[in-house]
Amino acid sequence: MAVSDTPRLVAHDIRHAYRGRVVLQGAGLTLRPGEVVALLGANGAGKSTLLRILLGLLRPTAGQVTLSGIPLAGYPRRRLAGLIAYVPQVHSTPFPYTVRQIVGMGRLPASGLFAAPSADDRTAVEQAIERLGIAHLADTPYTEISGGERQLALIARALAQGSRLLVMDEPASGLDYGNQIALLALLRSLAVDGYGILKTTHHPDHVLAGADRVALLRDGRIVADGKPAEVLTGQRLSELYGVAVAPVRLPDGRLIVAPRLPEEDR
């Protein structure tokens, strides 16, 4: 589905407190079509909260999020759903919807509350299923496929939604190693197609291998934002996670992050 303008999602100095506890205290972030942006942070750093605020699911205590220069609050819910899609962490559903039904839910913002799916809707669903290479699973219940396949179904739903910006909550969680790498390749190819992808992750290696930009969230603040190779220094990573860790340069120039266990110091 073609979108003419280039929507830009910007978080301006977001502050948020929940029941007196400060979760975010000055978080700024930008997402443009055509790039993969990773959000890295320890547990409890405020990643999920920031994600929900960026999606317009949560109103921040202070600061605001704009899309193409207009505050999110200025968009009707349905219109916003056509511009930003949410890809949740892989989950199960209480009912055994088929993969096609799950992807079909992505057409709800386009068709509205009461309408039945149109021919256009059906085409968009089939295209999204095709793009993700899960046509053979289309009629299989979502509850009976693997975590990796579920993640693909959820991404297909986001594509069917027609939004250019995709916000993903730990897309690699619950996936085996092979599927994690396949996911990185998929996100890269989606960015090449013009999608803007923001994802939270717990893997610095995934950031080095597959992200154009990385933002580090620590204690509710974005402490660094830039190219992964420049941002992910040993000192920053060690501070972020409270463990001794450093990137290592491979002979071919790529960086990987190697953890060091306390015993090895002896």
Binding site: L55, A81, T93, F95, F114
Partner: peptide, 21 residues
Amino acid sequence: TLGRALDALTMGDDEARALGM
């Protein structure tokens, strides 16, 4: 007539909201 909207609701509040419900 609200069947499809109900499908979205069964996915949980955040997802349903992100689907424009």
